[in-house]
């Protein structure tokens, strides 16, 4: 019996813009996924601890503060350190085009930027989990 995909949605850093993350949370729930929400203003350490304990398939990081190039490397390193590198990391929010490649190079699997239609978000996440296979 297949379990719903488990997703941890996290707001990391100081920005509190949560319109996007809430729409995504609702979209994923309505698509049958289990969404764990961390709340606002979390640190990379807190988020990774939660991702490990919750054993999520996907860690979704919402960032509109522009601090992604500082925060994402920390998160990727912490996942590695905590034996959770098989967590699929996805970033959403405002990310300039020139940062997309470096983010993907550090292991971020997908960027869901402004105006990505909800259905497409669901489809892309499902695909990522499928590609990963059982773990």
């Amino acid at each position: 019996m297949g379990l719903p995909i488990r997703v941890l949605l996290a707001k990391v850093g100081l920005d509190g813009h949560d319109r996007g993350v809430k729409v995504v949370a609702r979209t994923l729930r309505d698509a049958g996924m289990d969404v764990i929400y961390t709340g606002l203003h979390r640190t990379p350490e807190e988020v990774v601890n939660a991702a490990v304990q919750e054993d999520v398939d996907i860690l979704g990081i919402s960032l509109l503060s522009g601090a992604h190039m500082t925060i994402c490397p920390k998160i990727m390193q912490l996942l590695e350190d905590k034996d959770a590198a098989d967590t699929i990391v996805v970033v959403g929010g405002v990310v300039p085009d020139e940062d997309v490649t470096p983010l993907k190079e550090m292991g971020v699997k997908e960027l869901l930027l402004q105006d990505t239609p909800p259905k497409e978000i669901v489809a892309r996440l499902e695909k990522l989990v499928e590609e990963r296979g059982p773990r």
Binding site: L28, R29, D34, I36, Y37, T38, G39, E54
Partner: peptide, 25 residues
């Protein structure tokens, strides 16, 4: 949908960095 939004952790943020606490939703 059978999906869920699990928000209990938000009210337990004081415990997240404690190695002696494990939270599962």
């Amino acid at each position: 949908s059978g999906g869920a939004i699990l928000g209990d952790r938000i009210r337990m943020t004081n415990l997240v960095m404690d190695e002696g606490v494990f939270i599962r939703s």
